[in-house]
Nucleic acid binder design. Structure first.
Length: 145
DNA sequence: GCCAACGTTGGC
DNA sequence: GCCAACGTTGGC
């Protein structure tokens, strides 16, 4: 089980919109960055990921589950770009703000802080547990190795 | 709305 | 294969 973080502007695609898609979920399409794509390639079905709202919100609002491994993006004629499918798993009882993450010394190494431009990022196990705790999810869901 | 950071593109 | 130009992202 690995952990990741997806970023999205809620005005174009929010956690609520993913939630509305229900069990079939949604392709995480539109990624045009190799590092982000490579992170999606490294995902396996069942991985749990944070959903972060950029631009407005600036907080981690929920958890999503990977339900299909990376595949060519439907509707793209450029074979370089791949995406996984995800569905909403659970909302954070208490959204975890970027400000709170920056204030937490345990989270100083998070890509969200260090490389804010990366739209799909890895999250370490320790970071996962800490953010879940801050968000009112304890014990962290499926944090078993 | 501004601006810094950074990734991609394309000419050489 | 380098690097300047350019476009995009995202926090403030």
């Amino acid at each position: 089980m690995n952990h990741w973080l997806f970023k999205s502007e809620p005005s174009s695609f929010s956690f609520q919109m993913l939630k509305a898609k229900g069990k079939p979920g949604q392709e995480w399409d539109g990624v045009r960055n190799y590092a982000a794509r490579n992170n999606m390639r490294a995902m396996t079905v069942g991985d749990l990921c944070f959903f972060y709202h950029s631009q407005s919100g600036l907080d981690i609002v929920g958890i999503v589950r990977v339900i299909a491994p990376a595949h060519a993006e439907r509707g793209s004629d450029d074979p370089r770009w791949e995406c996984v499918d995800v569905r909403a798993e659970t909302a954070m009882p208490q959204p975890v703000t970027l400000a709170a993450i920056k204030d937490n010394r345990k989270l100083a190494e998070m890509a969200l802080v260090k490389n804010s431009r990366l739209s799909v990022q890895p999250v370490s196990h320790a970071e996962w547990v800490e953010v879940c705790r801050m968000g009112g999810l304890a014990p962290a869901p499926a944090s078993k190795e």
